[in-house]
Design a protein around this nucleic acid. Structure first.
Lengths: 117, 117
DNA sequence: TGCTATACTTACAAAAAAGTAACTATAGGC
DNA sequence: GCCTATAGTTACTTTTTTGTAAGTATAGCA
């Protein structure tokens, strides 16, 4: 099966594969959410603490989308008060090298920025 | 200089370094634009062809922002009709490994999707 | 009996992003 | 003299995203 076009490695039907990735993790906070999930299972209110810049509504929405895309697993415990645990699926774990590299780039970049570079 | 907090490797003042990266390349089409620039210098109308999903207005806007962030260089030739060439700066080129990995992930992911996985 | 905690949902409002279409300048060709 | 091409800009509208605030359910504790 040939999924590549003739031009520059972009598959037919898409301008570029990167567009596909951006559909999955393109939200403003999705990579951040995924990055935190690399540290293990997280509960909803943990994210509220870990991602102070984002609202509750945004979190639920992005978590649902990540779940729909098969990157995040949502485990509901039928208790009161409610308990829900989020974790990466196998699919989601394939993003780990990418997320680590994103983080690494940003750390270096921030050091440069704080030097006034 | 210690830019790390105590929790999970995230620097003080930010929830997470990944947020910094997303500020730079977080736009829907920015990684796509940058990816195409890895192939060398591009002119404006080339992008219109390479990124058929995006409008002219979006392209100029994203290209300006990438320029402001020091990732893209814009070279204007004072000719008629106008000629403008876009290329990656040294800073922009540091993103290449990341962009390649994004592309690679997406290609694998698409193959899986086309198998009905 | 009333308060707390968790993980939401919903309605509404505000802000940001994006699309559309028209307009700009001007060298060179017909 | 008019048309074409490039790389935009601008005004206006529409869509999407995001925020805010209030409401839901219910076990356990005081």
């Amino acid at each position: 099966m040939d999924i590549r076009g003739e031009d520059d490695g972009c598959p037919k039907g898409y301008g570029c594969p990167v567009e596909v990735l951006m559909e999955a993790i393109g939200g403003r906070w999705k990579p951040v959410i995924l990055y935190h999930l690399m540290g293990g299972t997280r509960r909803f209110n943990e994210f509220r603490r870990l991602v102070p810049g984002g609202s509750q509504r945004m979190l639920t929405q992005h978590l649902r989308e990540l779940e729909d895309d098969g990157l995040v697993h949502r485990e509901v415990y039928r208790e009161v008060p409610p308990k829900v645990e989020y974790s990466l699926t196998a699919q989601g774990r394939t993003l780990e090298p990418l997320l680590l590299q994103m983080n690494e780039w940003a750390v270096i970049h921030m050091v440069e920025a704080s030097r006034g570079e």
